[in-house]
Design a protein around this nucleic acid. Structure first.
Lengths: 329, 329
DNA sequence: TCAAAAGTGTTATCCTTACACCCATGT
DNA sequence: ACATGGGTGTAAGGATAACACTTTTGA
């Protein structure tokens, strides 16, 4: 309980750097599909306590130095000290703790610099295809996810009926069904359930091949290095939640935008459709934006009025966000 | 962006271990008032990646070993890598990153064991007297907090009027007034504001004595070692928020309790009064508890019916908590 | 003149808030 | 009998969810 000698460990800062382009949320990955054969991962950098006073400053430091991106909003997500999760059981290398971060940015002009560094932006729904409900319930759920999950729940019942019930309840809470609605914020819970059920490649890699090999299931979504997909799941969940009570969307928008563009961006992140009128009322009654007076030549149809974010709201109201209510629309 | 050598750092796990006794939230502190002359701090232990697979397991490990407490709920709060915050500028010791945790427990029987270890439970409002609104607005706000804070906001206006406006807005958002209500969840924001204004001892210690010495202000609340009070503020804020959408209160209750006891506990944590009928309806419509059939000989007055937590809710509904609405009652 | 997207007005419903009153026990 | 805390029914107000329709441009 008092001071004692602490074990030396290395600390890495892992970032989910998010932007939105063409109504698609994208994240910066290294070693992705475009750049080579290696499995994609999130960018990360070491934390050097001598050069940087705080973890946040350290993160901004290496991101700026290595990617030439200007990240605005930065938020710490979670700290993982997992051995036996992203490390192999026989791994005897130096121990590492990684601090996960969410960072928001605008889509950059000079993608060339990133490509040179072996990095690029990828749509995040490649890694989580079941999270995009904008065109209705994704087919992958009924085709490839729920059947093996239900089998996984049943499988526990052979020895222990109560455990099967617990698994079924967990399944229902995470993936909806049986009265429970789909909750777009439970991204991490769903990923962890798939991990536990051995349906994502990472579970295999971490030594759970038993479950995976036994069922010969197709692996769901594009896997990532270490536990980076878990960090990305945390980032998506946090961003989806934060949208509702902090005006963070605007970090992802151009300085001027139409209300439909704003709605499309919110929909892209939260992965579901929103009711147009209600969305507009929320934005309006929240006094989150102000008209610039300009209009834009639309992609077709009537030109849209342009708006900009009212920075003042942050000093006016306690929780200025888009309190998107319950279900779909 | 790729792998590179990481700086070795030590990692400490710092825990805010919370219980509630006699309608008072208490936390475990080391070196507190009862035990000696040293300044109180939160208990902490090293993280040993060899002995423990994850950070959470590591925390449970040393808490169990050193305090003989059974902590139920455990939640990671935040990771601080601050130099220049809890360390002195001239500090050249080994660098340390501390991971803050919130842990909930029942009040223990054998306090003797804790005392022997130089630890004990203290009411958390000693460290944050302005956070307890159960007997109405605390006098300390008007007496000792708001006047110097307003002066601090005005002081910035001499060179830079806009900055004074920003400070005033921040003050209003954190401490209410001018239409903004008091938000009991902004515990951390308030502490950080007081820190920035030089009104807590920790700011002095960290090298901000200028502001403090200039105004010769009385120091607010009992200070703590390092940045432990900041971690405690984070813990209180998180717990107050979590109450509303997760049934965490029950970790702090005896297995059987009356509804008034439950309400008193929630009030103790959130630091404000609740409307009796509304509270009961919330508990009832939430189906969070079930009657045991027993009653208890009350402290006076009619005997109260006893209830127990319905563990099943966690498998039934998505976010089972006490959705305590807006203002006071 | 027609397609395509922008933009608006209104109503039913639920949830939150607040009120005021009755009950059972110990002294 | 009365003080003390336990326990309940019900109405007003506001926020949310859902509805269908008009307007303005480019092809």
């Amino acid at each position: 309980m008092a001071d004692s000698a602490l074990t030396p460990i290395e600390i890495g800062l892992t970032a989910a750097i998010v932007a939105v382009e063409a109504d698609e949320p994208i994240i910066l990955v290294t070693g992705g599909s475009g750049t080579g054969a290696t499995i994609p991962g999130l960018p990360f950098g070491p934390f050097d306590p001598i050069a940087h006073r705080t973890l946040d400053i350290g993160l901004r430091g290496w991101v700026k130095a290595q990617t030439a991106l200007t990240v605005g909003y930065v938020e710490q997500l979670y700290t993982f000290g997992d051995r036996g999760r992203h490390a192999r059981p026989d791994d005897a290398g130096p121990h590492m703790v990684s601090v996960g971060y969410l960072a928001l940015t605008r889509v950059p002009k000079n993608v060339a610099a990133l490509r040179a560094a072996g990095a690029g932006f990828e749509p995040w729904y490649r890694f989580f295809p079941w999270e995009d409900w904008r065109d209705g319930r994704p087919a992958i759920l009924n085709d490839a996810i729920l059947p093996p999950l239900e089998q996984w729940a049943r499988a526990a019942g052979r020895d222990d009926p109560a455990r099967a019930g617990g698994r079924r309840a967990r399944l229902r809470l995470c993936f909806g069904g049986g009265g429970s609605p789909w909750d777009e914020e439970k991204v991490l819970d769903r990923y962890e359930l798939l991990y536990d059920a051995g349906l994502v490649e990472e579970a295999h890699r971490d030594g759970r091949e038993a479950a995976l090999a036994r069922s010969k299931m197709p692996v769901l979504g594009v896997p990532m290095r270490y536990d980076h997909r878990r960090i990305l799941a945390t980032a998506i969940a946090r961003l989806r939640a934060k949208l509702k009570y902090r005006p963070v969307v605007f970090e992802l928008m151009a300085p001027e935008f139409s209300l439909t563009e704003l709605q499309r961006t919110v929909e892209a992140i939260s992965g579901r459709h929103l009711h147009k009128q209600n969305f507009r009322r929320l934005v309006e009654t929240g006094a989150l934006v102000e008209p610039t007076g300009e209009t834009t030549a639309a992609t077709g149809g009537r030109p849209a009025a342009l708006f900009r974010f009212r920075h003042e709201v942050m000093q006016e109201r306690p929780a200025p966000g888009l309190r998107l209510g319950g279900r779909t629309s």
